[in-house]
């Protein structure tokens, strides 16, 4: 099981990703500098980490989406390889057009750092298959631009095709505007592409996997990936 973590100037969750995949899960996890043009051979998962790539200049993720390594990440995704983008990584995948939509400034205009609850809307993905449909798990968010936005017609398409992987919810799994921390349309916390191999999410599952550091609500995502890799 080989994971590549692209590192951009301003990435700051790359070490969280390396810790979760490498130390906690025991996968071979390789940081890849953004100027590289090739992923390590036989990379199975690309984990695009959070942070403030290129200082969020122009738009969050817009400059990183043009980095040399991104061409090979697109090739990997086109070939069916798994790509997980978290926080700024989600913004980068949207800007790179691997996922639809955009992440706007939070409705409150504030940077929000808190724990949220997510409801699993798709439990059939490589990223979610160890979880049950409708299951609720707790993970942290830490962002200023997580307000997911899409044209009404495209949003309807996304919902109709089951493109929403995770939605913000109450601890008991109830959906509603009061449970959405950032104003995201339809309470969307994470989406998946049509093929189901590229997932972007604002919350940080990789920051909730090590019992020595706190709660482990994010483990479901990594256990799912472990199952997917094992071909169970």
């Amino acid at each position: 099981m080989r994971v590549a973590v692209p590192v951009f100037p301003g990435s700051n969750c790359d070490h969280d990703a390396l810790h979760a995949c490498g130390t906690v899960m025991g996968w071979e996890t390789i940081p890849v500098w953004h100027q590289e043009t090739r992923l390590p051979e036989n990379t199975e998962l690309v984990f695009v980490p959070g942070g403030f790539s290129y200082g969020d200049y122009l738009r969050c993720g817009a400059i990183a989406a043009l980095a040399p390594i991104m061409a090979d990440i697109k090739r990997h995704a086109d070939a069916g390889g798994l790509v997980l983008g978290v926080c700024n990584g989600f913004q980068i995948l949207c800007e790179a057009q691997l996922l639809p939509g955009a992440l706007l400034r939070n409705e409150s205009l504030r940077f929000i750092h808190t724990d949220v609850h997510l409801r699993v809307e798709r439990a059939d993905l490589p990223f979610t298959r160890a979880m049950k449909p409708g299951a609720v798990f707790q993970v942290p968010i830490a962002h200023a631009e997580g307000n997911f936005t899409l044209d009404p017609a495209d949003l309807a398409d996304l919902e109709a095709r089951g493109g929403v992987a995770f939605r913000y919810c109450s601890p008991r799994g109830e959906i509603g505007a009061s449970h959405v921390p950032n104003g995201a349309m339809n309470g969307i916390a994470g989406i998946v592409n049509l093929r189901g191999n590229v997932l972007g999410m604002m919350p940080h599952p990789e920051r909730a996997v090590d019992p020595r550091l706190g709660p482990t609500g994010g483990l479901g995502v990594f256990r799912s990936l472990a199952e997917a890799f094992a071909g169970v």
Partner: peptide, 10 residues
């Protein structure tokens, strides 16, 4: 025009 501009609102 349809996009919320919280900065403009503030």
């Amino acid at each position: 025009s349809g996009i919320l501009d919280p900065q403009g609102k503030a």
